[in-house]
Each structure stands twice: as C-alpha cells, then as structure tokens.
Amino acid sequence: MKKFLLKSTFLIFCLYLPWITFIHTGRYYYAPDDYLAWNYKHDIIDRDSSKFNPKDIIIGDSLALAAVNPTLISTDLYNLAMSGFTLVDSYYFLKKYLESGKTPKRVFLSHGMTHWQGSDAFSGQTIGYGFLKTKDFNHFLESTSGLDFFYSPEESFSLFKKWFPFNYIYPYVVKNHKSTLAKVEYYLFKLGVAPLLFNHIKTIILDFYEYDQLKRKKEIIVRMESMKGQHFFDFNNTVNLPNPITNYDNWAIHPVNDLYFKKILALLKENKIQTIIEFVPNNYVTWKNFKPTFFKEMDSYFLDISYSYPNLIVSKSTSMPIENYGDMDHVNEIGQSVFSELFKAKYYKP
C-alpha cells in the first residue's frame, strides 16, 4: 500500500512539475493572442522611466486598442489599452505604472459600455495569467465587500454543481460566499489547477494545427511595437448587430465599476494627472438603439463626478458608419484611421 501510494504520488509529481513550470514561464505560448497586449503592456511597467515615459497614455479595452493609433496622432501618445480590460484592471495597472516612476501628464480612459455596465469586474485571465497579484486581489476583495458581488467563480466550482449533496448547497454557497470561492479559485490558478487554464492550454495546442499561433503572435507584437501599442482586433467586415449585453435604455453603471472609476480618478488627481474620458464611437446600427434616457443618465453621472474632479473631461459618445467596423464593436483599418484623425483633431490641435 505504502509503495503504491508513494509511486502514485511520484507520478503525479512528475506530471505536475513540468506543468507548473510551464504555467509560470510559458504564458506567452499558451495565452490566447488577445492577451498578448496584456503581456506586452505589463512588461512596459518595468521599462526604465528615462527611456519610456510618454506624456499621454490611453488606458482602456479592446475597442481603444484597435481604434487609437498613436503613430497617426502624436509622438506624445502611447496606447496601453488591452482586450477585456475592465475598470478594476485599469486601476491596478495605473497604480503599478505610476509607482514605477512614470509621469504621464494626461490619461485617456476609454472603455466600452459593456465594461461600465458589466458585472465581470475582471476576467478569469486577469488572475489566471498572474496580472493581478495576491496583494491586489485581497485589496480588491476588501474594497468590494458589501457591494453587489459580480465575480462569479463558477468556472471551477461548477464541477460540484450537480454533485450530490453539493448540488443542494451550491446555490447558497455561490450566493453567500463568493468572496471565499473567489479566493479559492485564485489559488487554484496560482497552483495551475484551475479548469480554465487546462482549457486554454488544450485549445492552444489544438489551434496550432489550424494556424501558426507563434507566427501570428510575433506579428501582433511587431505591430504593437511599431504602432505604439495599437493592434487590430479584426480585419474583416462582419455582421453588425447590437451588443446583446449592453443596456441601451439606461446608463446603469455597475457599483463595482463606479467604485473603481472613482478610485482611478482619485489616484490620477493625487498624481496631478489630467483625466479624459473618451468613448470609441459605436457603429451606426448599435447607435440607433440608445435611448435618450441613457444619455441623460450618463451626462448626469459625469456631471456629479465633475464636482469632485473639476479637471475631468468627458467626450460625448458618437457613431460611425458600419463600413468602419470589423465586428459589432471593434473598428477595422478604415475606422482606425478615421477615429485616430478625429482624436488628433480633438486633443492635439496644432
């Protein structure tokens, strides 16, 4: 029995050792190409401030990542937007960026409506790939305690969803102990045993057959290097449908996003940095769905905020023709030049 248990443990160890080494060192290889920008831009934090210290930076999600091409706008601007980047992610990123000695004069915050309204304050990958450190994660849990919790750690715990007798207590635990579950899931990621990691790695392995992942990843990095942080989300014109998870009737900002937006403003105010809220235009089909109540509530929200942060500039949300989009939200090459020109005209008047 002892021999069997020892040998089984040794086998598990032999499998786990290369696995955990790969998890912690091979992020570039196994992370989906969406997250290359995360890798690339988090590495920027460690760059020497005397060599990399742009006056203006844009922080935001994939809409901004695709739409703002600094090479068409100004040498002072750098695009630090990332796919799926939420307001919570933005806060911790900015904090680390400023702590590293960088001194931007202006920060453009640009998130799509889904990231203002959405309940996913950060995605599993934020933890999974180690972009959110333990300290930040604990701080986040403390800050949001008492708020309507949003982060659903169901990815790992759904295993127990149908498992008797856990099926009976599962809804109660998920509802009342999300914070604890989130912590457990965080450590599962750290230990490299979260189902999401397995799934990503398996997907990437299978995708190698379909196209050369590494070649594509290299191309994206080269693009970001030459375009100062910008890369396309999608090159093709596809069907433009309204985003199904956006509330077009009301501004409806999620309490956690509200909290972290204010934290960002406070952080930037403390560092005497001007904050500009910039919205990437919506495609015209989507635009038509917005109700007047949405804009009324949005204006009122930013007006209230501006009393505490008088330097805050909020640009109006607008629209562009469908031809400028690669999918329902992200601009294509045409949209990128059109929007970059508009951006330049607005903030970099000669």
């Binding site: 086998l11 032999c14 499998l15 397995f198 799934n199 790695i201 398996k202 997907t203 392995i205």
Partner: peptide, 18 residues
C-alpha cells in the same frame, strides 16, 4: 516504463476532448 506512464497521463490530460 515510467516515461510511458507520464506520457500517457499527460496525453490524456492534453488531448482529452473538451
């Protein structure tokens, strides 16, 4: 034997259908 054990379990983990 041992590399075979490790390879087969690893193969199962990576190539089992999602």
């Amino acid at each position: 034997r041992w590399p075979l054990y490790i390879t087969s379990v690893g193969f199962f983990i990576l190539f089992s259908f999602k």
